[in-house]
Simulated assay, not measured.
Amino acid sequence: MKRPYHAQCFTWHTCLRQLAGQSFYQDGRSLCERCYQDTLEKCGKCGEMVWEHIIRALGQAFHPSCFMCVTCARCIEDESFALGSQNEVYCLDDFYKKFAPVCSICENPIIPWDGKDAFKIKCMGRNFHENCYKCEDCRILLSVESGDKGCYPLDNRLFCKQCHMKQSAAGCC
C-alpha cells in the first residue's frame, strides 16, 4: 500500500482485526477477508455471495448462471429481457412466443421485427398484423382511419367501404 505500518497498527478500523500476515482486500481501504465478504452482494436467486462478474437487474445482483430465462434456461447476461406477471425472467424470444398476441389471419405472433416495434391492429376483438388487415373481398390493405380504405365490418368479416356497401346490397335483395 506504499506506506509502512506497525503490525499492530495495520488493522481494519471496523473489526480491529490485524491484517498483517493475513489475506486482505483493498479498494481504497484495507479489508480483512471477513469484512470484505460482508461488503459483497448476495445473488437475488441463490442467495450466495457474488464474487466475480455481477449482473445487475431488477434492483438486485445475480451470478451470470443464476440470471436465466425461465423457459429455455439460457443465461441472460447483457441482452434485453422481459418479465412475466410474477416477475419471472424471459429471454425476448420466449416472452414473445408465450405472450405476444396472435394475428387472426396468418396465426403468427405479432412481435417486433429487426428491432422495430410491431404495430398491432385490434378490430372486432381480433388482432391483426398491418399487412394482414385487408378487405376480405378486394384484398386492399385497410386503414385504421375511417374513410374509403377504413374497415367496415359486416357479419364478422372485414371489408373496405366499397365492398361493405356491395355486400350489404347483395344481402338485402
Rank of each mutant, 00 (worst) to 15 (best):
C151G: 05
L142E: 01
C72V: 12
F81Y: 14
D27S: 10
V50T: 02
W113K: 14
T11M: 15
L83I: 08
R157Y: 02
L92V: 15
H13Q: 13
Q22F: 08
F62W: 09
S146F: 10
H164A: 01
S104C: 14
E130Y: 11
S23W: 13
N87D: 11
V89Q: 05
F62P: 07
H13L: 13
F67K: 14
L154R: 15
Y36V: 02
M68T: 14
K166V: 13
K45N: 09
A61Y: 00
G59I: 10
T14Q: 15
S168Q: 13
Q18F: 04
Q22D: 01
E145G: 00
V50I: 07
E88C: 06
S65M: 09
V102Y: 14
D117S: 09
K161I: 07
A20G: 00
K42P: 02
K161C: 02
A118T: 05
F95K: 00
C138P: 02
A7E: 04
C72E: 10
C75Y: 07
P112W: 06
A170L: 12
C138F: 12
C75H: 12
D137R: 04
V144Q: 07
E48F: 05
K42V: 09
L142D: 05
N87G: 03
L19P: 03
S104D: 03
A82H: 10
T39L: 12
R126A: 05
C72G: 07
F159R: 06
S80D: 07
H13T: 12
Q162L: 04
L141T: 02
C9F: 06
R126C: 04
G59M: 08
R56Q: 08
C72N: 01
F81T: 15
A7C: 09
C46D: 01
K97E: 15
R17H: 13
L141K: 05
I54T: 11
K42G: 05
W51Q: 10
Y133I: 04
